[in-house]
């Protein structure tokens, strides 16, 4: 087959909803896009462990502590599923980690915001994991097989993350006035960053069209963001908290809630590395990698020793 016919049969498979597998032909650009997206996604899961790990030792009860620990452990697992999926495309684990540690690869900007009160554990589970789920459910049908299968596993595990967060918010919202205020403050701080998790506006998102054509993405950033706003407004009402944006209003004509324009300067500023915690998060990951060097070496040496013993 010629290059042209390879590409035509690739797009035909995509259009017929036949999944692409690692050994199948794929255009270079498709491979590159997937490596970037999946590795960024993996990095987000791993860096995303940090803001919540910050509260494990200070959880208000043993139940909350066990739950938070289980959630953070799940996020580690999600990172591992995704790194494996990316590796099927021909990049190594070490190359990906190197890209993360040198700042060449990005992770979701949401994790560059600080977790300053216990209520942040509620807001993160509810809003951040909630937004992640909204993004990830369509990815269970994404066109690249290993990515889709990893996402099925991730989505199964995510729903407890959101529910435990909402339960924390519920306890605080029904608690003392100070606790309720804490919940409100967390909602107000996490609302806009959570909406930014869906990425830039469609109008300035150059990769969206190609990703939709390749069925890597199935909905645009703006579609998913709107869907998230629509379901979350109802959840805020059930908590009995105030809406975090005075411009949230039902629009009869559109059949959706209107809301304020987001501060995109802030978004790009955090992406560029100037968010409140960018430096701290990266430094923590690099330190963990360096501190683990002797463990990796010792395990390799031990495996080598056992292998030679067996051979002898």
């Amino acid at each position: 087959m010629t290059q042209v016919s390879f590409e035509a049969s690739f797009q035909k498979k995509i259009d017929e909803e036949i999944m692409i597998e690692p050994q199948d032909y794929m255009p270079d650009e498709y491979r590159k896009t997937l490596i970037r997206q999946i590795s960024q996604h993996a990095h987000s899961e791993i860096v995303g462990m940090l803001p919540e790990a910050n509260w494990i030792t200070r959880a208000p009860s043993l139940r909350r502590k066990a739950v938070l620990l289980a959630k953070v452990q799940d996020e580690g697992g999600h990172g591992l599923y995704l790194y494996s999926a990316a590796e099927t495309l021909g990049i190594t684990r070490d190359q990906m980690l190197h890209q993360l540690h040198t700042g060449a690869a990005k992770y979701s900007s949401i994790f560059n915001y600080p977790t300053i009160t216990w209520a942040d554990m509620g807001a993160i589970g509810w809003l951040v994991d909630g937004a992640a789920i909204m993004n990830q459910v369509p990815l269970c049908r994404t066109s690249y097989g290993p990515y889709a299968r990893a996402m099925v596993r991730v989505c199964k595990e995510e729903s407890f993350h959101q529910r435990q967060g909402y339960e924390i918010m519920l306890s605080l919202a029904k608690g003392t006035p100070v606790q309720k205020q804490m919940a409100q403050d967390a909602l107000n701080r996490w609302w806009a960053p959570a909406l930014m998790m869906f990425g830039p506006l469609d109008a300035v998102s150059p990769n969206t069209a190609k990703s939709m054509e390749w069925r890597i993405k199935r909905f645009t950033n703006d579609e998913l963001r709107q869907r998230f706003i629509d379901v979350t407004v109802e959840q805020i009402r059930i908590l009995g908290l105030e809406l975090p944006d005075a411009n949230i209003k039902w629009n009869e004509e559109r059949g959706h809630y209107d809301s304020s324009e987001l501060n995109w300067d802030e978004f790009w500023n955090v992406v560029k590395g100037n968010g409140p915690c960018n430096k701290e998060r990266l430094a923590t990951r690099v330190k963990a990698w360096e501190d683990g060097a002797w463990v990796r070496e010792a395990a390799s040496a031990y495996a080598e020793k056992r292998k030679t013993k067996k051979a002898a």
């Binding site: 190594t92 684990r93 070490d94 190359q95 190197h98 690099v286 360096e290 990796r296 395990a299 390799s300």
Partner: peptide, 11 residues
């Protein structure tokens, strides 16, 4: 920092 080529095998 990168520790290239010393990756544990894939299973």
């Amino acid at each position: 920092m990168s520790n290239e080529n010393k990756e544990w095998p894939l299973w």
